[in-house]
Simulated scan of single mutants.
Amino acid sequence: MQQFIDAAPGIRLWTEQRGPADAPPLLLVMGAQATGVGWPEPLVDALAEHHRVIRYDHRDTGRSTWAFEERPYRIADLATDVRAVLDGLGIGRAHLVGMSLGGMLAQMVLADHPDRCLSATLIGTSALSTTPYTRPDGSTVPAGELPGIAPEVLELWSRPVEEHGEAAEVARRITHWRVLAGDRLPFDADWFRSLERRVIAHTGHHRTSTAHGRAATDGMLRTDRLAANEVPTLVISAPAEPVFPPPHPQHLAQCVRGARLVEIPGMGHALPPAVHNPLTAAILAHTAAAAG
């Protein structure tokens, strides 16, 4: 079932629900510049066997309002959209699953509104905390000195997005996914091509917004509140992650009180078919444990 939610004045968000209406709600929160359709269909269907699964388009993606030029916003405003989706659908509490920027938004909701969270699963993201990372040998590393984004990713991100037609845009996105997916699993270009064609069909055009990259990042740190967390939290560790490489997941698990860490073999900063089953199993085991 598809539905639009009024998240703020002049801002409407596209949402989709799947699974039994009376099942525990699970909200999927995608990364920067990514639509809700970026959550792969098999993963959504598998989660929907046990949950009322909701996915949505961020502002300036998919079928939601594109209005950053007229009404600039902060990344923190995207976290308020998470609650707006729950409010608009009449959901008091939900399991949150956030990927990349979505994992940061989930952290902000987890810290500011734990009463809205049944559990949280954080994937491919970084801690909104200044707490140092403690290595296995007991030594520490300042949060700001953890490994940065891989050079090949930064090089791609530095290139201007030029308009050369839909086919060229799809090819550009596949090149992007090839780097994000890492080098541990075989890369299936056809699968990612099909994904991007679904995204374009859903959106209605192949333009790419840069709004999230330009949105203000002030007010995102949640060091003390994450350290006092009481919501069951799962951190997914991806060994081939090029955006927030290890030990970012380990650091995140240390920053969020009570968090558990589960590694998905071969995973990078993408959701190809090879990770669907282990990732689904990890999420469902976590939500089931959170339900008691």
Rank of each mutant, 00 (worst) to 15 (best):
M1D: 13
Q2S: 14
Q2H: 15
Q3F: 01
F4R: 00
I5R: 00
A7N: 01
I11Q: 09
I11C: 12
R12P: 01
L13Y: 00
E16F: 00
Q17H: 02
P20G: 08
A21S: 06
P25L: 04
P25T: 07
P25Q: 07
L27V: 04
V29N: 02
M30A: 15
G31S: 13
G31E: 06
A32T: 14
G36Y: 00
W39V: 02
P40S: 14
E41I: 10
P42K: 09
P42A: 13
L43D: 02
D45W: 04
A46Q: 14
A48P: 06
A48N: 09
H50T: 11
R55Q: 08
Y56R: 00
D57I: 07
D57G: 04
H58E: 00
H58G: 01
D60K: 11
D60F: 03
G62R: 02
R63G: 01
R63F: 04
S64M: 11
W66V: 08
E69S: 15
R71N: 14
R74F: 06
I75E: 12
I75D: 06
A79K: 03
V82I: 14
L86Y: 01
L89R: 08
L89G: 09
L89F: 05
R93A: 11
R93V: 02
A94Q: 08
V97G: 00
A106H: 01
L110Y: 11
H113Y: 11
P114E: 10
C117Y: 10
A120L: 10
A120P: 05
I123L: 12
I123A: 07
L128K: 00
S129H: 09
S129E: 04
P136E: 12
D137T: 03
G144Q: 14
I149F: 01
P151M: 05
V153L: 06
V153P: 06
E155M: 13
L156Q: 15
W157C: 12
R159I: 04
P160T: 10
E162D: 08
E163F: 12
G165L: 05
V170T: 04
T175P: 02
W177T: 12
V179M: 10
R184W: 05
L185N: 13
D188S: 08
W191R: 08
R193L: 04
R193E: 15
R193W: 08
R197F: 08
T203K: 15
T210D: 15
G213K: 10
A215C: 11
A216S: 14
T217I: 12
D218P: 03
M220I: 04
R225E: 11
R225F: 03
E230S: 13
P232D: 05
P232C: 03
P232S: 06
T233D: 06
V235T: 05
S237R: 15
P239S: 07
P242E: 06
V243M: 10
P246F: 07
P246S: 08
P247G: 06
H248R: 02
P249Y: 09
Q250P: 00
C255H: 05
C255F: 02
A259I: 06
E263G: 13
H269P: 04
L271Q: 11
L271N: 05
H276Q: 14
N277D: 13
T280K: 03
A281H: 11
A289P: 04
A289F: 05
A291M: 09
A291I: 02
